[in-house]
Amino acid sequence: MKQLFKFGVILGVICLTATLVLAVTYQVTRPKIEGELSQEEQNALKVIFPAADSFTRKTMGEMEYFEALKNNTAAGYCLKITANGYNGFISVMAGIDPSGVITGVSILSHQETPGLGAKINEIKPGENDQWFLRQFKGKRAGKLEVKKDIDAVTGATISSAAVTTAINNAVNAFFKEVKNKK
């Protein structure tokens, strides 16, 4: 019994030290991690809504979005969307103007298979943006269909469809919320 107690104490001390060390490391790295994330978000916003000069973060119900401001008036919205990809979630940002026409799409993170699904974010040599995401630009979101309106990535129909459907659903839900509010 005494031995068991000793084991417990030693293990407890080690666990406590480990937790302390981690808590300190977390506090040290947290500002940098969060800064990095919001920096990425800002970069993505500029890519999907180049016309705007500033963005304000807003929430509506469960939805998180950014209002794109131009000369202090709302020129459109950038929605944060989560798509159910092939291997897990795909985190997407899509910019739309007030009528629902897409101004740009950007992928923040994904876990799709390299060489297949990952090509939703591929930049072809000699080009400077993603060919798959470029297709969305200027199209009206809501009823987009893969293979009809949007060319799927070869061998990754599921990933391509996931992004497209998620954008449709998010935009539809967004406008429904807006209408309800009015």
């Binding site: 000793k6 080690i14 480990a18 981690l22 790295t29 991690i33």
Partner: peptide, 27 residues
């Protein structure tokens, strides 16, 4: 560390370093 609880102790030490590496890589 006593012989009998050495494996859990080692695991805790390893997990700590893994998390440190993980946090620093994320930053």
């Amino acid at each position: 560390v006593p012989e009998k609880v050495r494996i859990p102790c080692y695991i805790v030490i390893i997990a700590t370093f893994v998390t440190i590496a993980d946090l620093f890589m994320r930053a």
